[in-house]
Amino acid sequence: MTKISNISKLSETFSAGLWKENPVLRLLLGMCPTLAVTAAVKPALTMSVCVIFVLTCSNIVVSLMRNLLKPHLRILMFTLTIATFVTIADLFLKAFMPEMSTKLGPYIPLIIVNCIIIGRAEACASKNGIMISIVDALGMGLGFTIALCTLASVRELLSTGKIFEFIVMPKFFVPWAAMSMPVGAFVTLGLILGLMNVITRKNA
């Protein structure tokens, strides 16, 4: 009996991150990478993988030490944990994907101040057991990935005529350079958020 309720709770936590509490499209957290690295799908995907890695690791560690935390020092602990994993992710990128590392530039180290991760540590991992924390991290991370990749594929398609560096558009297509600039990020994000609102209003 308890096992079934456990599983349903886990799947609920997981799916919350995908749609109902999607960190980017619903909670509007983590706007900095959302606007900055979505000019193409590849960097967006790399960024998402990094965020999933950092989020999962920090959720695990925070969940493990949740009973030892002193309330007034908890944010310090969260930041310390997150910074460690971000530095590791950054070093790995530099070593194994140098091209991508220069492209993403400062936005990988900036994951440290990404609200999604510290938000999940505060809202979920510091209050729940390790299983729920992991599932929550994966759900939220996947929601983040979906949002970033949607945004990035629209922008990459219109600004270069390619998706994931494969040419999709016909030959006569002239790329819209503005879509790879910040303008494109804001406009596309705004339109996607509007679309989300239309869909949820219809369902409600």
Binding site: M65, L68, K70, L73, M77, L80, T81, T84, L91
Partner: peptide
């Protein structure tokens, strides 16, 4: 602050 100090050392070591 013992947790903070210990964690700093451990994390520093990992990095």
């Amino acid at each position: 602050s013992w947790l903070l100090i210990v964690a700093s050392f451990v994390f520093g070591l990992i990095i």
